[in-house]
Design a protein around this nucleic acid. Structure first.
Lengths: 106, 106
DNA sequence: TCAACTAGTTTGTACTACAAACCTGAGGAG
DNA sequence: CTCCTCAGGTTTGTAGTACAAACTAGTTGA
């Protein structure tokens, strides 16, 4: 039983490339709509849709659907929890990365 | 058809948490053995074994098996390609992360 | 002789990401 | 009207895969 260093465990829900991209983009804006997210992440509509559903079920994002100019418009923003979790994920990645240059003193 | 920004596409083979840990650890040393990798990554033997097999098949690591003190000893090191790919992966992650603070001028 | 340990490998299954098919309402064109 | 096509999504079937658990094989100790 090696102690698994809990500080480094990566959450697959967040780590998945598509969702990591979505959450990272969202962390830089108040909110974004479906079409914008599709452009910035490069995901297909289908995959973006199902990733967003997962993220919503997990409580990481909040989704609002309305009609704008008679077209459906899906607006997404991070929840407080989501904002915290994506920041934490990036800092875990940093810690992992820094394992690679650990030759400081001695 | 949004242009998927090829510079940001993450390779799932490398991105998977267990393998990302293995490759990152390996990138800081000349070589490491099975037991050392198990301790540093926190993976179980079974999972470490199958991840190493995948990485070897992909040409990212080179594995040598011998007996040391009458015990089996599996020594792993990055190939040239592997070293390049893990470095590239981390720089893609950096670029993704930096999408999140893009408010420079204007 | 047999139990337990080290150092791994193999296997069965439960999950899940993706592509492709589908849905729904809004404009045109004729 | 009736038919097309488009925008903006959602649902579904399947192929792939990560993991836990079971297994293997050689060593040491009692």
């Amino acid at each position: 039983m090696p102690e698994p260093n809990q500080e480094l465990v990566l959450d697959r829900l967040i780590h998945e490339p598509g969702r990591l991209a979505i959450l990272t983009v969202l962390s830089s804006v108040k909110s974004a709509d479906f079409v914008f997210l599709q452009r910035t992440t490069g995901l297909t509509k289908g995959n973006l849709s199902s990733h967003l559903t997962k993220l919503e079920e997990a409580g990481l994002v909040q989704i609002e659907k309305r009609f704008v100019l008679k077209k459906p418009n899906t607006s997404v923003e991070l929840t407080k929890v989501g904002r915290k979790r994506i920041a934490e994920h990036w800092s875990r990645l940093d810690r992992l990365k820094n394992l690679a240059q650990p030759h400081p003193q001695e």
